[in-house]
Write a protein that binds this DNA or RNA. Structure first.
Lengths: 147, 147
DNA sequence: GGTTAGACTTAGAACTATTCTAAGTCTATA
DNA sequence: TATAGACTTAGAATAGTTCTAAGTCTAACC
């Protein structure tokens, strides 16, 4: 814990993928390396850009396939904040988010274990899949320092 | 309160729009009539289909423009649950949502005033814009009644 | 160390939801 | 009733994502 957001060695990443039953191809290792090198929030385009910083080596289709696979395997989590904008969050601890639609910035809120307690019972024959809490914020228009 | 989700007369809708400083054109009245005739959750496509049930009279561009205007004026609220899927919610009371990604169904949760209490302080120079709580659920795979 | 079936990756086309554009129409005010 | 500006429209454009079909790699077996 905590180590995840240091730079990880390829061997560590390979191990991490294997533990989740993911065949560690070179593309997947590269993408996981990017996701876990923090900061923790990327959209697909960010991942594509970072993975190909030097030279285009991973296709867009693979980035999407891989992110989808990682979500399915529980390695990363999707956060939906706007139509046509999905963030992939490599922090899988329970936590919530601040989202500033002006800047497009997404920030973690340490889970305080709040919302779940007082939820009403789930609808019949359903089970919990996750709780997303997004606190939308905007830059304050201060009277002292008018924009 | 409560009346909003009975069928409203055009005159009432016109009044509602004027109160929000929205010029009540025939298209806007028709769209508002649809939104407030409940149930409370529609995507743009739903609205477009309902408004043109008899005969195409309102263009897609106008549906989007009008929904955007209603959001800006606080008449309806957007709910983001999946990439490329925005719901428009004509219930503007504080409340949260269940979302079943299997069925695509969105259901209201009466606000219990929970999440806000224990939030950490907002980042510097920002103010609150809203809190979205989405409880993701899925159909239960019961051992008694296997799918 | 080779073979090989199936899994993975790729470029580019296709698709979907949404926004834009530019021209025509309507509204509300005088 | 005239008019300026707001509103609506069809269709093109865009952005993000998924699909397709062909080639490449992986790992399990010999």
């Amino acid at each position: 814990m905590g180590m995840k957001f240091q730079m990880m060695q390829p061997a560590q990443i390979t191990e991490l993928l294997r533990r989740r039953q993911i065949t560690p191809t070179s593309q997947r290792v590269k993408i996981a390396g990017t996701l876990f090198a923090g900061p923790a929030h990327f959209c697909a385009e960010d991942v594509y850009a970072r993975v190909n910083e030097d030279d285009a080596e991973v296709s867009k289709a693979t980035v999407y396939n891989t992110l989808g696979l990682f979500v399915a395997k529980g390695l990363v989590r999707q956060v939906f904040v706007e139509p046509g904008k999905v963030f992939y969050d490599s922090n899988t601890q329970p936590h919530h988010h601040f989202y500033d639609s002006g800047t497009g910035e997404l920030t973690d809120i340490d889970a305080v274990g709040v919302a779940l307690h007082e939820l009403p019972p789930l609808p019949a024959d359903t089970e919990l899949d996750g709780v997303d809490v997004i606190v939308r914020i905007r830059q304050r228009q201060s009277k002292d320092r008018p924009a």
